[in-house]
Design a protein around this nucleic acid. Structure first.
Length: 570
DNA sequence: GGGCCGTTTATAT
DNA sequence: TAAACGGCCC
């Protein structure tokens, strides 16, 4: 990942630091790098879609580091990757292929009973899916941590944030493992940050400003630097054989002009230079200069640096290599973590792509626990079990996303149920495109749910009365009744309870009370539900903040929040 | 000798 | 995934 050997090459500019240096400042985090590291501790569980608690250990890992930053009074801003840009498709496909191969090998070893070999292979098979990222997003939301999902590359988004002033919610540095950040022009980048906050920092001004340090970049500008990086080989374009970072540097510093470097290269390397190398090279350079990013102020897509008219003309106005344009409403939904940037579907909590075939009800526990509350939209929909029984499919790398039908995507956002596979949504349910008024959105969903309810007996509606969040799930999914006289401690599902609950699967359950980590569930007849769910008085008085915490309740989160205590906020 | 390239190893707990 | 190491070529 990133630019081949760039970090090694830039070593003279990289200095050890401790992140407390950034106390009182906003610091960006490349979510992918911590997600990937965190996933090592539970790679098998993630690959096998295990139902165990272990599967969520990557969240503990991530939150531990977030809390380390907060301990030093640093404001973390977590940035997630969005969709893939076309010129990265080859790289992504190759990674995908290797992961699949490793997963198959791991499964084979597992069958043989060689657990150690299997887990080693699973580690090479981990893929950070949008669903995994979304699990974390829900925790970040509940912890009030700033985050944004980039339309495409997180690196570009982070570099953009680093270019903003502090008053405009800019960041002063980025924590990552990816050398691309330097190429994108990030002002200060911290690599290899460990659990104590020690890391290695590169400050871009030192690179272009140093009089003495070698290799010298005094006569470089950002374009030349990017050119050097692309020549050395990046995710968007492999290098020409025989050209590494050192050759790239010496050529660029000798000719000081990328066109001249290209012609010299063709002269020297002849047939080793692919036919379309110049074009691909120009595009790769343009991605680093003008990548699409999300402008949180304007709430729409922008370029990290505006495209000069000259460049627009030279590439014939064809900008699809930067990834397709995305309309503002969709871009915002993606940025705010409400829409899967790859699958272009609303995130339907943890059920969608993670549920294994023939899952147990305890899976639901986790799913329902991670629901939390949706502050902005005030509602959340579950998909049905039938959808989830399908094997989770990896979304293939696609270069041809179309956003022509913005309405359709927004409708998906509102109602992420696949009607033919799940509950019977009558054809004549009017699906209007909502505006951005969350209240109207809620109204619309309630309307849809009413329709669904009256047309299908198999629908189970769960209402959290306190927040008026409406959850819609199928009758196969039964919420566990909390053990009585047990208001403290972690809620655990007991298999016998599950069986009992399963046997009354045709009944309709209404959550009437959420208390601590226990869900109190009552069952009622269809008629009484259709009339109106009734409110049950609270067992004990709780403060508003406590209630809020409870509504966000998720065992994993509770676990994560407990880690907060390791690093009390200064 | 410098630098490219393929292979090995640690990653987390 | 990327850093580190060692072999090999120009």
């Amino acid at each position: 990942m990133g630019i081949k050997d760039l970090l090694r090459f830039m070593k003279p500019y990289i200095k050890p630091i401790h992140i407390k240096k950034y106390a009182g400042k906003r610091v960006g985090i490349d979510a992918y790098s911590w997600l990937h590291k965190g996933a090592y501790s539970c790679s098998m569980e993630l690959c096998l879609n295990s139902t165990s608690e272990r599967k969520l250990r990557y969240i503990d890992y991530f939150m531990h580091r977030i809390n380390l930053l907060r301990h030093y009074n640093i404001t973390p801003v977590v940035v997630f990757d969005g969709g893939n840009i076309p010129c990265k498709a080859a790289t992504e496909q190759e990674r995908h292929r290797r992961r699949e191969a490793n997963r198959d090998l791991a499964m084979a070893k597992l069958k043989e009973g060689d657990a150690r070999a299997a887990s080693e292979l699973f580690q090479k098979a981990i893929s950070i899916t949008p669903a995994i990222a979304h699990q974390l997003i829900q925790v970040l939301r509940s912890e009030n941590i700033d985050f944004v999902v980039a339309p495409y590359e997180a690196d570009a988004q982070l570099a953009y944030l680093s270019s903003l002033d502090v008053e405009k919610d800019g960041i002063v540095a980025v924590i990552t493992e990816d050398s691309d950040l330097i190429t994108y022009g990030c002002k200060a980048t911290v690599f290899k940050m460990d659990r104590h906050g020690n890391g290695e920092e590169l400050v871009l001004d030192n690179v272009f400003g140093s009089e003495t340090c070698t290799p010298s970049f005094r006569n470089f500008d950002q374009e030349l630097f990017i050119g050097m990086c692309v020549l050395a080989g990046c995710d968007f374009l492999p290098s020409i054989p025989g050209i590494g970072i050192a050759k790239a540097y010496s050529m660029v510093s000798k000719y000081r002009n990328l066109d001249r470097v290209l012609s010299v290269l063709k002269l020297e390397k002849g047939s080793q230079v692919p036919e379309d190398y110049s074009k691909s090279f120009r595009e790769a350079v343009a991605v680093f200069q003008h990548a699409r990013i999300y402008d949180g102020d304007a709430k729409k897509l922008e370029h990290i640096k505006p495209l000069p008219q000259k460049l627009l003309q030279s590439i014939g106005g064809e900008l699809n290599f930067l990834g397709p344009e995305i309309p503002p409403s969709i871009a915002t939904a993606i940025a705010e973590g409400r829409l899967d940037p790859v699958g272009m579907e609303a995130f339907n909590v943890s059920l969608s792509s993670q549920s294994p075939v023939g899952k147990t009800l305890s899976r639901l526990k986790k799913a329902e626990i991670t629901v939390g509350s949706r502050e902005e939209t005030g509602f959340m929909l579950f998909t049905s079990q039938k959808t989830m029984e399908k094997a989770p499919k990896e979304v293939p790398v696609s270069c041809e996303r179309s956003y022509l039908n913005e309405d359709a995507a927004l409708q998906k956002l509102l109602l992420p149920l696949k009607d033919h596979e799940t509950i019977k949504v009558p054809d004549d349910v009017p699906l209007q495109v909502p505006n951005n008024n969350p209240f109207k959105k809620r109204k619309l969903v309630e309307m849809q749910l009413d329709q669904i309810q009256s047309n299908s007996k198999e629908v189970l509606v769960v209402t959290d009365i306190e927040k008026l969040d409406v959850l819609c799930i199928t009758p196969d999914i039964i919420l566990p009744k909390a053990p009585e006289n047990n208001n403290s401690g972690k809620r655990k599902l007991h298999s016998n309870q599950l069986d009992q609950r399963q046997s009354i699967s045709k009944e309709v359950s209404v959550i009437t009370e959420v208390e601590d980590t226990n869900l109190h569930v009552t069952t009622e007849s269809q008629e009484s539900v259709n009339s109106k769910p009734k409110k049950i008085s609270k067992g004990k008085a709780r403060s508003k903040t406590e209630k809020k915490k409870t509504n966000n309740c998720m065992s994993s989160v509770n676990k994560s929040t407990s880690i907060l205590n390791f690093f009390p906020r200064v």
